[in-house]
């Protein structure tokens, strides 16, 4: 059973991947994490939330807000054969993952409810503007660049603070 959020995620991946002649376009995991985070903040995804995790980000260890629910859905989409996963080594000797929607995934998307796509398009494919490019600035922050000139900084690398009090504890 593919949830509505998983369908939105599949459609989001399809916007950034696909085949171009002999070549294939894959989306790297850190770019996808940034898109998912932005989708959560912009209320595209209904049931996802995020948590800080130490990850390999653009060649260095950084704390990023990652959605475990989205990770679980990526696993499900792969199990269903709707997306493929590619592992590749970077020149900095860490491994990264990339994803691409499969033909089965594309066919599945033809049948999803229009409002699923509409929700995603609101942020990631606005009518008349198209799919924004995602780039990384010098500080490693992802930025969405829309064709109408809008630039949005995605704050995926900014963990949030929680108010708390604690006392020392020893094992």
């Amino acid at each position: 059973m593919i949830s509505r959020d998983a369908e939105k995620l599949l459609y989001l991946i399809s916007l950034y991947t696909g085949g171009e002649g002999e070549l294939e376009k894959w989306i790297k995991n850190y770019a996808l994490w940034a898109l998912i985070y932005h989708g959560i903040v912009e209320k595209v995804f209904e049931k996802y939330d995020y948590t800080p995790v130490t990850v390999m980000w653009y060649g260095v260890l950084r704390i990023a807000n990652i959605s475990m629910e989205a990770e679980a859905d990526i696993f499900k989409l792969r199990k269903e054969g709707l997306i493929n996963k590619l592992r590749l080594a970077t020149s900095k000797y860490r491994y990264i993952t990339a994803y691409k929607v499969t033909e089965k995934g594309e066919k599945y998307l033809e049948k999803v409810e229009p409002r699923v796509k509409k929700d995603v398009d609101r942020v990631f494919n606005p009518p008349g503007v198209g799919v924004p490019d995602i780039t990384i600035d010098v500080k490693g922050n992802p930025i969405l660049i829309y064709k109408d000139g809008r630039r949005i900084l995605i704050k995926v690398l900014y963990p949030e603070d929680v108010a708390y009090s604690s006392s020392p504890s020893f094992l």
Binding site: V162, A163, Y164, S165, S166, S167, P168, S169, F170, L171
Partner: peptide, 10 residues
């Protein structure tokens, strides 16, 4: 080892 016990959150 850094250890703490949460007393209160919000």
């Amino acid at each position: 080892v850094y250890g703490l016990q949460i007393q209160q959150v919000d």
